[in-house]
């Protein structure tokens, strides 16, 4: 369920980010608590908490004392902007590399 190739807390953070981007967690609504995430993902609560804190540090989530973590207003746009920057590195570069392996010329893409 989690991306094993990354540190666990980053995979947790990215999963919450995905939820924000696809509308599972609308802005100004709460995300699951540390313990809920830990039980659901079967990971240590400290790791789950680290993932949530990473998002709080990035301004994607905001802590409300005694209530939990909420999605910041504008979080989806913030994430979209950041992920667009990563898009080329994560998807386009490997795509071009594989194309080169296969002898596909990007200028004359196959049908």
């Amino acid at each position: 369920m989690l991306d094993e190739s990354k540190p666990l807390f980053i995979a947790v953070a990215e999963q919450i980010e995905d939820g924000i981007l696809d509308g599972t967690y609308p802005e100004d609504t709460p995300v699951p608590s540390t313990n809920e995430l830990a039980a659901f993902l079967r990971i240590n609560p400290a790791t789950a908490g680290k993932g949530l804190n990473r998002l709080a540090d990035a301004g994607v989530l905001v802590k409300r004392r005694g209530v939990g973590m909420f999605v910041t207003v504008g979080a989806a746009e913030l994430l979209r902007r950041r992920r667009r920057d990563d898009f080329a590195r994560a998807y386009i570069v490997p795509l071009l590399r594989e194309a080169a392996h296969l002898g596909i010329d990007p200028e004359n893409s196959p049908r």
Binding site: L8, T34, N35, A38, A39, L41, R42, I43, N44, P45, A46, T47
Partner: peptide, 30 residues
């Protein structure tokens, strides 16, 4: 695993777990 995780979350304590089933517990270990 699930009971340990849930109870540890609600009642934090020090747990020392010795096992050969490393893959099964690796996400629980700090």
């Amino acid at each position: 695993f699930d009971h340990l995780l849930a109870d540890f979350a609600d009642h934090p304590r020090t747990v020392i777990l010795s096992t050969h089933h490393i893959d099964e517990v690796s996400n629980l270990l700090e």
